[in-house]
Simulated assay, not measured.
Amino acid sequence: MASKAALLSLLPFVAANLNKPVITPNFPGNGLASLGPGLMNNLAPTHSTWDDWGAGWIPSDCKSMVQGAGFSPNDIIPFNIHYDDCAQTWTFCRHKNSPLSEIQILDIFGRLPVRMRQFVRHLVFVPGNKSAGSNGDNVLMVGDVDVTVFAHEIGHSLDSHAFDPSYGVPFSTGNVWVSNYNLDSAVPDPYAQSSQQENFAQQTVVSLYDKVVPGGIGTIQPNWQAIFHQYATLEGYIGNVIIPGGTCTHRLTDSAPVTMSGSKKSRRALGPKPKVSLSPEVKEIEAIPMESSITMTSFDEHGKPNGTYVIHL
């Protein structure tokens, strides 16, 4: 159902809200999906284990996003991921027909730096045309998305949580970011032109690549100077958050467990109610409240962003 909705309501990117052109030459493929192989080759996996939640339960934020996308919560498998570099588990929600398996999910997410991972709450994976969007520190992933999409969507939570509030919240609206944006002549791609928040999230992908791939962003973008002040500002002010290594220090509490179905038959089959308290080894991050809709970005078969659609929760 989500796939059909995307086809019916997909809107192409329209007139840019930012006044800078896309960098020339364009990134290969005219988008940042070209950074994916370099990231996967240079970000090491993190050892992890996983286990399913109690039967019949689902995090409330997952349920809202799944139903908004047109799927039944009864087809969702919530599962916990235990990474060696964090005392707190992550609870993700995967539709049984998602093209990304549990193993693929924990591998891709676990390759991202742990201090970056710590700012996301739930990731939700459903089948459909490739697209993604974030809401309330949760991310909805549709179809076979890659590591650049993971990094971009987590970038939105970094924008809101990973900087000193005196610089502006989100950071992408503050004077530090905007003044350095004004020093550059371009943005990475048409997706980044749509708003400073999307530009920041795309620059998160660029900055991560610049930090973890030998030789940095110049190995794939010869005109890196055109966006230098933006990605260098992100790197300079976010510190070690996008650097691999270390352990998590802060986390978001999982959303409250709710039943997948309200039927009496389903309630009789419920397993133990999952506990969602935080480990004493991490400090709590105040979550951004969920909004009533998610603007999803859609991607073509090559991973290039090609439009948006809205999911109402």
Rank of each mutant, 00 (worst) to 15 (best):
W177G: 09
D210V: 13
G110V: 06
G143W: 01
P289M: 01
F109R: 02
G174I: 04
R267E: 11
K273I: 08
F125D: 06
K130L: 13
P37E: 05
Q203D: 12
Q88H: 03
D184Y: 10
W57H: 06
T24V: 10
P113R: 05
G36W: 02
L7Y: 03
A87K: 08
I58V: 15
G110W: 02
I81T: 15
S72Q: 03
Q104L: 07
Q193V: 09
H229E: 14
Q203V: 11
K283R: 07
S48G: 07
V282Q: 02
G38H: 00
P37V: 09
A33K: 03
E281W: 03
Y191M: 02
P222F: 03
I23R: 05
W50G: 08
I217G: 14
L43R: 05
A33W: 04
A256M: 03
G29P: 10
T46V: 15
L35S: 07
I288H: 01
S195M: 08
T295R: 12
D164H: 10
P73A: 07
W224G: 06
F92L: 15
V187Y: 02
T253H: 08
I77C: 12
D159Y: 13
H152P: 07
I81W: 00
A5W: 13
P165F: 12
K20C: 14
G174T: 04
I243D: 07
P222N: 02
C93S: 03
G218H: 10
V212C: 13
